[in-house]
Each structure stands twice: as structure tokens, then as C-alpha cells.
Design a protein around this nucleic acid. Structure first.
Lengths: 206, 206
DNA sequence: AAATATAATTGAACAGTGTTTAAATATCCA
DNA sequence: TGGATATTTAAACACTGTTCAATTATATTT
């Protein structure tokens, strides 16, 4: 059936146009200032049409959030050349932080905003694949570090979550404007400096 | 002038009633589901009245956020009995995490939500007093730890921000539902376990 | 006590939000 | 060409934060 093939293709095309419009809008106005009507205007369809391609707004935001994870993961895989696991781990933190600094809104959507998680919750499976995959990657790396004698007397799962938390904490306090406690000069470099401070902690863990 | 005294008192009273209503509403429906009209209904005034007592909604949320800081600080000061600075620091983390677990919405308002910071930004001074005071407290404590030989080769400011970040990261990933990556059994204890994992890191820093 | 000035309160309006749905239009197949 | 199917739309619903002219209440002065 060539016709239904084409129809499916056209469907996917419009779906992508909606996502493109959404991405474009929320990159230059922010997620909170992007409405369904705004998106509809760009793709030159009525607002109602969007609901035939996405369940709701959270569905759209969840799609963009997944896109962010693909971007992040492609940055992460570059580091696979680093053979020493502990150097790998420290570099991973730098890549993660860099991603957050360069893509504030995307990071916000991926790790802070409620909407994508609300969408996940309403799915039948109710599991956060993007997060799980990325976290598993981190866990395996930390396991390698432990195998080399790092992090004695630690349990893999809490340790991994803690390391993720530490780096996320730095980025999220920055993104959500809690670095106002610092003088302006320091504010600009605090994210990177705090990460290096954490990396120093790690160096002492053998 | 007794009359203007009484008027000022009445003004303050209504201001408090507005805050009480707001607190009540957002504690059992969440901040995002609390509208000015909801608050107005509880205090039995029209929505417009609220704007004669608060600049805008952010003003109200900022007031509640300050209240949260008073609560947190009163929990923190209890620990002043702990004489060993490193034990003090570890206990402070526990108190902080406990506060977050027991007051999710309040923590969210204090350290994650944009609104209170947006209010601070529009103030003439543009400084986050609540955050600064609390951070200074942490910094002084960490300075004592350093004086005892802990955290060698670290700089006070980035180190302090990093330690705050680590603990905040744990709580905020939990509050914003990013612990879905873990099995349900682990989810319940991960926050406390991750904190203890971080405390183990600290123990190695001498 | 009456008139005026000040303060407090209101209701309606504005411009937006996400979402649903009945009706209209377009496309496809027999 | 007629009927089934899919797509698109406009309008409506029930909200949101905020502003503002008009009203009501209180206080001060004549």
C-alpha cells in the first residue's frame, strides 16, 4: 500500500514540523513562554491540529527532552577514548557540566522541569528510559573505578546517584539562579570551579 | 496617632491572612495549582485586593520562601552543640536533607522554583539575603573543618558551593522525580543512602 | 453634623493559557 | 460519482495573572 505509506510519511513530517517549531520557540523564548497557539502559528495550522499528533503539551516537551538526551549521549561517547576510568569519570563530569552551561533550557527540561516526568508517569510502562540508560552508563564506569580500588567501602548504586547528584546540583543551582549568593566575578566561574573541587574529592578516594 | 497605628496593624493582619491562605493552599494543592483567585476566595476578598498588599504573585511566593528559610535555619542552629566541625558538617547535611524530605514543596520553592528569584531580581538591591545568610553559615563551618586539616588544596568558596550542590542535587533529583531510574525499594532510601555516601567521601579528606 | 479628602475594595475587563469537540473540509476507495 | 475515512478547523470551556475605573468605607476638616 503505497498510499498509506505516504500518509504515514506525511504524518511523521508534520509531527517533526511541530517539534521543530516547538524547539525553535522554546530555545529563544523559553519553555514557559511557549504556548500551543505559538507553535500552531509557526506551522500554520490551527491549535487543535497539534492534539492529533501529540497527546498533550507534556508529550511535546517529553519528545524534546529525549532529543536532549541524544545530544548529551553523543557528547559522552566521545570520551570512550579515555582508558583510565577515574580520568574518564572526571572528564564525564566536565562534559556534563559543559552541556548544561551551553544548553540551559534543554538541561532544565531534562533534569529539572516537571513536565517530561509527568508524561512518563502517565505512560503505561511508567519508566524513564532516557534517564535509566544514561545512569547505567555512569554506573558501569564507576564500577570500573571501584575495580581499580577507588571508592572503598562504598555501594555502587548510592555512590553513583551521589556523584550524579553532585554534578547536577552544581548545574541546577546555577540554572535556577541560586548563584546570586556569590559575587559577580566568581559567579561566572563557580560552576567549573565547583566541579574541579569535586574532582579533587574523587582523587582522594583510593 | 492611634488611628494610623491601628490601620497599620489591620493592614499587617490582612497581609498575614493572605500569606496564611497561600501557605495552606500550596501545602495541600501545590504551588502551581494555587491561584490568586483561590487565595482571594479563602480570605473572602476580591482578587484585586491582594494586589494592594503584594506587588504580584512572586511577592507572595517570595514571602513564603523566606518563611521556609527561617524554618530551615532554626533546624540548623540546633546542631551548634556539635563541637567537632566535620561531624557538624555531616550532621548539617542530614538536617538539610531531612528538611527537604519533610517539606518537599517548601524546598522546591526555596531552591528550585524560579518565582522567588524573579522577585529578588526585580528588587532594587537584587541580592538573595536568605540564601547568602545560609551559605555564609555553611562557609564558616567548612572553614573550621579546613583549619583542622580537612580538605587540603581546596579553596573555600568553590568547595562550599560544591558541598551545598552535592546535597542539593540529591534532594532536588528526588523532588523533581528523577529517582525513577531506580527500583522502587531503593527509591525510598536513596536520598539518605546517597548522603551517607557523600559523607564517606568527606571522611577521606584529611 | 455635613462636606470633603483619603483609603480600601470591588467587579469587570484584558490578554492570555491548555484542552475538547462538533462541524466542516479534504482525501481515498469502491 | 457516492460513501467512508481521515484531517482540519473554529468556537467554546474553564481557567490564569494583572490592571483599573468606579464604588464603598473610613477619616479628617470645616
Amino acid at each position: 500500500m503505497g498510499i498509506s505509506d505516504r500518509k504515514e510519511r506525511e504524518r511523521q513530517e508534520l509531527k517533526n514540523r511541530i517539534l521543530d517549531a516547538a524547539r525553535q520557540l522554546f530555545l529563544d523564548k523559553g519553555v514557559d513562554n511557549t504556548s500551543i497557539r505559538n507553535i500552531a502559528e509557526i506551522i500554520e495550522y490551527s491549535p487543535g491540529t497539534i492534539y492529533h499528533y501529540f497527546k498533550d503539551k507534556n508529550d511535546i516537551l517529553h519528545n524534546l527532552h529525549s532529543e536532549g538526551f541524544r545530544q548529551l549521549r553523543s557528547r559522552m561517547t566521545v570520551l570512550e577514548a579515555v582508558s583510565d576510568p577515574i580520568e574518564h569519570l572526571k572528564a564525564l563530569g566536565r562534559v556534563y557540566v559543559q552541556f548544561g552551561l551551553e544548553n540551559r533550557d534543554m538541561y532544565d527540561l531534562m533534569f529539572i522541569k516537571d513536565e517530561p516526568m509527568e508524561f512518563v508517569e502517565n505512560e503505561e510502562e511508567d519508566c524513564w528510559v532516557e534517564g535509566s540508560t544514561t545512569f547505567d552508563y555512569l554506573k558501569k564506569l564507576i564500577q570500573k573505578c571501584m575495580a581499580k580500588g577507588f571508592f572503598p567501602d562504598q555501594e555502587l548504586e548510592p555512590l553513583s546517584f551521589m556523584i550524579w547528584s553532585a554534578v547536577h546540583g552544581i548545574v541546577s543551582l546555577y540554572i535556577r539562579n541560586r548563584t546570586k549568593i556569590l559575587s559577580e566575578e566568581i559567579q561566572n566561574s563557580i560552576v567549573v570551579d565547583a566541579l574541579e573541587s569535586f574532582n579533587k574529592l574523587i582523587d582522594q578516594q583510593k
